[in-house]
Amino acid sequence: MAPSVLYPPVQLSPAASLELAQTAPAVLKSSPSSVSSSPLFSLVGGSEKSEQWIQYENLILTCLRTGDDQSARECLERLVSRFGADNERVQALDGLVKEATAKNNGELEEVLKEYDQILSENDTNIPIAKRRIALLRSMGRASDAASALVQLLDFSPTDAEAWSELSDIYLSQGLYPQAIYAIEEVLVLAPNAWNIHARLGELQYMAATASGGAANGSYQKYMAEAIKRFSRSIELCDDYLRGYYGLKLVSKALLNGDGAKTSKQTEEGDFALPDRSTLEKLHELATAKLAEIVRRAAAKERGWRGYSEAETAAARELLAQDTAAVQR
């Protein structure tokens, strides 16, 4: 499917974003360059579409990414002429354009000062606060970004996106317990988000492998949690490749290692590891499901074309490891 300008373009591949950015001049040409917000105008002219503004916003992101600063500025000008330069979201986009076109660290510091200036006037300007955190992180000052983010979450604790970013910052610093805590907060806010459940499972698995092998007491706790989280993500979403992948990875690691045998009762309230037969069943189920997904996605069967190429390739590799082990 061709990429649409109506979705946030952050996850697009470079090729797709290039394709999207090349549509920018046409989009800019086809829509009127200035839309008045007066009610009289809307009587005379056509009604304004809300999608158009989303389109401009996403085009700014894509054009900046592909280096088409000219189109990005033009989109921004239109947003400014419609919503005014003091709109919080427009301010953030303006900052984004400045960040992207800054040539050296000095200019970045300038942008940062500008953000501080805006925040000193109105410290509840959340889009700007988020940009400031992102810029700090981009400049390599991750701990500053983390403390700023904690401050932001102090007065806006229901911001799931910010919690998720905090988890990512902690993860990049190797602070697994904190990262897990932050992503758990996201789950409190969005308990049905299957990808976040899988993400939490991945974090638990990473924490387990970083804890230093099966001898460590926290290894089992993390692995048990990981199994639980991956299972929940599968429960929430049929044929979820990422969930099955994680489940297979974790159950295989537990079956191969001696983690399953020494499953002693942990502290009260903790989730004990399931016994060996359950683990084997889980492993079998995950293997069967992954094999089915890989086979059908590779055949491009109708109704199985939604998986990304990279994900199915990774699953195929994981399955191939299994068969190699059997042949040996």
């Binding site: 984004l96 960040e99 800054a102 988020k130 992180r137 998720s164 988000a193 976040i196």
Partner: peptide, 15 residues
């Protein structure tokens, strides 16, 4: 829920 992982408001545009 994919926005919770892509986080467009925190995008690192320079990267």
């Amino acid at each position: 829920f994919s926005v919770l992982e892509s986080r467009p408001n925190f995008v690192d545009i320079r990267k």
